[in-house]
């Protein structure tokens, strides 16, 4: 698995003309693609006959507040060659933006919508970028590590009376000081996509 991935990664790097950061930890190895070459790398991975990754298994985001980035991870698979590749890219956490790969694989449209919904990554070029899982008037992107739940949503309390609730986000991470900075910057970005109604603004 590892050697095969290394060779595939090398082939991809040759075609792109950049040196890719190849990481091996426990589990699956992966390659880090610079954000500006993201779409080009995906196109190459699909069209190059030696690679021909025609199946986008999944595309998702990972929040790394300590590094100040939101990673976007794509799992590729090729039915012809039966090999797989994991590619990562980093986007800036305060203004995460990435070129859409929906023209490469149509499956990416929905995966990118989901990543936008839960992480707030703005995919430029996606034909239908709006919230998919959460309601249109939702505030914030819940899978970010510093997401804080409002006390109520549309008049329904978010905690059941008499039940205690484990807190999200801030409790999760040990170092506290890092969070406030990106959150303030995050707010206008998250607020623009769902039309920030008066009611939801109050909850915040």
């Amino acid at each position: 698995m590892t050697t095969a991935s290394k060779e595939i990664c090398k082939k991809l790097a040759d075609k792109l003309g950049v040196v890719l950061d190849f990481r091996e930890e426990a589990g699956d190895p992966w390659a880090l693609i610079p954000a500006e070459r993201w779409k080009q790398a995906c196109l190459t991975a699909r069209d190059e006959p030696e690679l021909s990754f025609n199946f986008l298994r999944s595309l998702c985001g990972v929040d790394r507040p300590d590094d100040g980035v939101i990673e976007v991870v794509a799992h590729l698979f090729s039915y012809q060659h039966r090999h797989a590749l994991v590619i990562h890219t980093n986007t800036d956490r305060s203004a995460s933006r990435l070129e859409s790969v929906s023209s490469v694989w149509p499956a990416a449209i929905w995966h990118e919508r989901e990543t936008f919904d839960l992480f707030g990554v703005d995919f430029t070029g996606n034909p239908d970028l709006r919230r998919i899982l959460l309601p249109e008037d939702w505030v914030g992107h819940p899978l970010l590590k510093d997401y804080e739940e409002p006390d109520s949503y549309r008049g329904i309390p978010t905690t059941r009376p008499g039940y205690e609730k484990k807190k999200f986000g801030p409790q999760l991470k040990k170092p506290a000081p890092k969070k406030p900075a990106p959150k303030v910057e995050k707010k206008p970005e998250g607020g623009e996509a769902p039309k920030g109604t008066a009611g939801s603004a109050e909850q915040k």
């Binding site: 930890e25 426990a26 298994r57 999944s58 998702c60």
Partner: peptide
């Protein structure tokens, strides 16, 4: 406490490939 790393594991479910992407 799994070591630091990430893994994608899939099985063939009744609705096809069911995958878990797990980062530790």
């Amino acid at each position: 406490r799994p070591p630091k790393g990430e893994v994608y594991s899939c099985v063939e479910g009744a609705r096809g490939e069911l995958g878990v992407y797990l980062i530790s």
